[in-house]
Every structure is written in C-alpha cells, then in structure tokens.
C-alpha cells in the first residue's frame, strides 16, 4: 500500500502506529481501522467510535441496548465478534441473559461466553511420569515423524499416520486414557 495516496495526517498516523510496534504493517493498521469503523457503523454511526472505548470501559450497559429484543442482542453479539471486540460480545451476552431469563438462546450465549473459571485438581504420579516419558520421546523423535499424527502413551508410540482422522479411528476414543494425540509439523 502506498502511503502517498493517503492524506498527510492519516499517513503520519499509520507510520507512527507501525513504528511504535502496535501493528506489523501498514495493511494491518488500515485493516484494524476498517473493522473499528464497521463496528461503529453497526452500532448506529453517531458519536465517537466505541470499539476501543468498549474494550476499556468495562461492563457498562448502553441504555439503547437494554431496549433491544433478544434477536437484536444476538445480532449485536455476532457483530461484535465480526468487528473483533469479543469483550463487547461477552458483555452483551451476560446483560441479554439477565434481561431475558426465559430466552433459551440468550441463556446459551451467556453460558458459553461466561468468564472462565479456574481451579486446581490433583495430578497423579502416573500421569506426571507418563508426561515426562512422552516428552523424552518427542525430544528424540519429533523430527522423524514430522507431517504425521501420532498417539503416545507413557513414552510408547502406539500409532503414527499422516491422517489424524485415521489415527483416531485406529486408537479409538482416547478421552480420559492419558494418550497424547497430536500432529507433528
């Protein structure tokens, strides 16, 4: 992209954003600006663009949003994702679910987009030993199996194949069996 095609003040802004490392290229700056503008337009287009503000302002409800129907809220959530503002999508989902507690779809949005919850759970000596054995195998052999999906159990190669789906078909349901399945690239 030729910056000479842009107004001087805009070209300077773009150059500064790249120079300060906030974006890797001129194209990235322009792409981000376009998304910001699209998000602004999708929210009505009046007043200051709010994408950046929404990221920083926390869970404050816009009065207009509270008047939206469930379908409007779901459309707004999708729009927030499309304009790369997931924080806004999450906020809308939580507020929409509170506003419409009987609306199943909004309840699902709120559940899926809820803030993560974290806890600690004991590991077993066997699982820790198996993990270390797998790691030793990978350090030694990963380059030999590049391009393959592999199944490893406690440092023992169970199967290797170029198709990950074939790998799963061969070893079966590995959930809860402490078998590492991965593709080595």
């Amino acid at each position: 992209m030729d910056l000479n095609d842009l107004p001087v003040d805009l070209a300077q802004f773009v150059q500064q954003e790249v120079a300060e490392g906030r974006f890797a290229s001129v194209e990235e700056v322009v792409s981000a600006a376009l998304r910001l503008f699209q998000g602004h337009e999708a929210r009505g287009g009046n007043g200051p663009a709010t994408s950046t503000v929404a990221k920083e302002s926390g869970p404050q409800a816009n009065p207009d949003e509270l008047e939206r129907s469930p379908e409007d809220i779901i459309r707004a959530i999708k729009q927030a994702f499309e304009t790369d503002v997931p924080q806004q999508a999450e906020r809308l989902a939580q507020e929409g679910a509170q506003r419409y507690p009987e609306h199943d779809e909004l309840q699902k949005y709120a559940r899926v987009l809820a803030p993560p919850t974290i806890k600690m759970a004991p590991s077993t000596a066997d699982s820790r030993t198996a993990a270390k054995a797998d790691q030793t195998w990978l350090n030694t052999h990963w380059e030999d199996y590049r391009g393959n999906g592999i199944a490893l159990q406690a440092g023992e190669l169970l199967h290797a194949t170029s198709s990950f789906d074939d790998l799963i078909a061969h070893v079966g349901d590995v959930r809860g069996r402490n078998i590492l399945v991965t593709k080595l690239n």
Binding site: V112, A114, I118, A121, S123, R128, K132
Partner: peptide, 12 residues
C-alpha cells in the same frame, strides 16, 4: 502438570 497440580479451566 509435570510437577504440582493440573489446572482445569472452564472456558470458551
């Protein structure tokens, strides 16, 4: 974990 506890995260 290789050392210590595992950490389950309920997430999106």
């Amino acid at each position: 974990a290789d050392e210590g506890d595992n950490m389950p995260i309920e997430t999106t």
